[in-house]
Computed example of a mutant assay.
Amino acid sequence: MHDTLPLLAKIDFPRLRRHRLETLQVNLGYRCNQSCLHCHVNAGPNRTEMMDADNAALVLEVLKARGIGTLDLTGGAPELSPHFRALVRGARALGVRVIDRCNLTILSEPGQEDLADFLAGEGVEITASLPCYSRDNVDRQRGDGVFERSITGLRRLNALGYGDARSGLVLNLVYNPQGPSLPPPQEALGEDYKRELMQHFGISFDHLFALANMPIQRFGSTLVSKGTFDGYMALLRGAYRPENLDTVMCRSLVSVDWQGWLNDCDFNQMLGLPAGLAGKSRAHLRDLLTNDPEGEAIRVSGHCYGCTAGQGSSCGGALGADREEVEGQEPGRAATATARAETNGPTFGREAAPSRAAA
């Protein structure tokens, strides 16, 4: 696999400092039941890195000590951690909002048959990856049969009340472009998703988050192999919007790796760029018990343009309204369609919404 950090380190990015810490994002390990092309974690079934019991307990201590309002659990597939359910219960007992970054297929894995009921019972907010509402596109990016299992998982969640505003159970979906393109306008794409998933599968959800692919790990290595890394970086830098800087997720979020080390974001974690705190160049979760990270410098590099290009991108979706959208334009008509881009080569622009015929 190609290491993109040396390439990214050559690219300047504006300096940033932290605001108040509001979210603790914890990576419980890199083990996953899938191996997706766009995965910036390079997760998969053969990964063995998993958080231990001591660090999992420390997460709850930090939530309480710092008064953090949101615990964002990620991986890999975070549900595969033996400490996942204890963390969820402990955080909910503290009144903390818990987000589970779920790949949907985990809901039908052996031994996880009661997972959906557990999540609903604890009032966990689910942010689920569904990079397209087209079967072919999802299976191409995530593996054969993933789309069907994802639909089954979504139907199960809907049956429990997820995606129904009356239930209080929040279900958000995540979209990633198929290749080296910016995502379409989030609001318009979300309307497409809601229409297509309801029409074809009877599925409802709350919000769609449109995320840009980061030029790191598996996706970044693919760009290098195909000779498209420089073109993609030029796209991100050309679409840079300085007004996105104030709301990038690293301002109010700390990412914790499976060993308890702190990072400014999940992407920095994967690049091996640790976060500093209280004079330490590499801080640990335990350091948050006695030190407030507000005002600390954030480590930046070329990949940060992925969060600040166009409408912006974060773990909670776009950072603001898309300022390039043409009023009255049909959603998805602003760029070359995914299928055409894959046929004719990389398209460095905004990716179009999938064709309705592909659903």
Rank of each mutant, 00 (worst) to 15 (best):
M1L: 14
H2E: 14
H2G: 08
L16G: 15
L16T: 15
R17M: 07
R18A: 07
Q34A: 14
C36I: 06
C39A: 09
V41E: 10
A43H: 12
R47G: 06
T48F: 03
V62T: 12
V62R: 03
L63E: 00
A65K: 09
A65C: 07
R66M: 10
G69L: 08
A91K: 11
R97T: 12
D100V: 02
I106C: 02
L115Y: 05
E122V: 00
G145S: 02
E148H: 05
R156T: 11
L160W: 01
G161I: 05
S167L: 00
L171H: 07
P177I: 10
P180M: 07
L182H: 05
P184R: 11
L189G: 10
E196N: 09
L197C: 06
M198P: 05
Q199K: 14
H200G: 05
F205Q: 11
A212M: 13
P215T: 15
R218V: 14
V224C: 01
K226Y: 09
T228G: 12
T247Q: 13
V248W: 01
G260L: 10
G260Y: 01
N263R: 02
L277N: 06
A278D: 10
K280Q: 10
R282A: 02
A283Q: 06
A283M: 08
H284N: 02
G302W: 09
G310V: 03
S314G: 14
E327C: 02
E327D: 06
E327T: 06
E330Y: 02
P331K: 05
A334H: 08
T338Q: 04
F348T: 09
A353R: 07
P354D: 02
P354V: 06
P354N: 05
